[in-house]
């Protein structure tokens, strides 16, 4: 039961931080600085636990898996925001609402691929990270092709 309680506390902290970022519209702590701080904290924790007599590799793996769980929790708020956006912006906003929806679907694609990449690297599943990376490379082409297609179809329709 203690593990579920600690998981709930961890999830609440990560979700609160992710929602804070979304509400602010930019990173609260810059991404580069955040990654450096996370790596330093990870190395310090592993070092402390190692010198307290724990095995190095299982401790590092457990901490990396906790980090992967944090990445998965951090992917939830953008998904919820995208869901609200997909239901919220209907056809009543005119023909250009397509580009808004395109942006929303781009967020879903990006969050999915980033979660796959980072979580795959942290739990040492390289296949998961590789598929996420290949999918990540397709995202701009997919969104661009859809927007380009809609632009020309809309233009043809208005000329008729």
């Amino acid at each position: 039961m203690i593990f579920e309680i600690l998981t709930a506390v961890y999830a609440a902290l990560v979700l609160a931080y992710a929602f804070w970022n979304i509400k602010r519209g930019s990173f609260v702590v810059g991404l580069g600085k955040f990654v450096v701080c996370a790596v330093v904290a990870f190395l310090a924790l592993v070092g402390v636990l190692y010198f307290r007599g724990n095995d190095l590799w299982p401790t590092a793996l457990a901490l990396m898996k906790i980090g992967a769980a944090g990445v998965l929790f951090a992917g939830i708020p953008p998904m919820i925001a995208a869901t609200i956006g997909l239901f919220r912006f209907g056809d009543e906003y005119g023909s250009n609402i397509f580009y808004v929806r395109n942006h929303i679907t781009g967020i879903v694609d990006t969050v999915s691929s980033l979660v796959m990449m980072v979580a795959g690297l942290l739990i040492l599943r390289i296949d998961l990270a590789a598929v996420g990376f290949f999918f990540f490379m397709f995202i701009p082409f997919t969104g661009g092709a859809l927007a380009n297609s809609y632009y020309y179809v809309n233009q043809r329709r208005s000329e008729r």
Partner: peptide, 29 residues
Amino acid sequence: TAFLSNLADTAFFWAAFAFMVAATAAGLG
């Protein structure tokens, strides 16, 4: 280490589960 491993397994399971639920909601949209 055993404590951390159990915590990591529990946290990863529930995180993936919650992410899949959020992805399902996005799928409905």
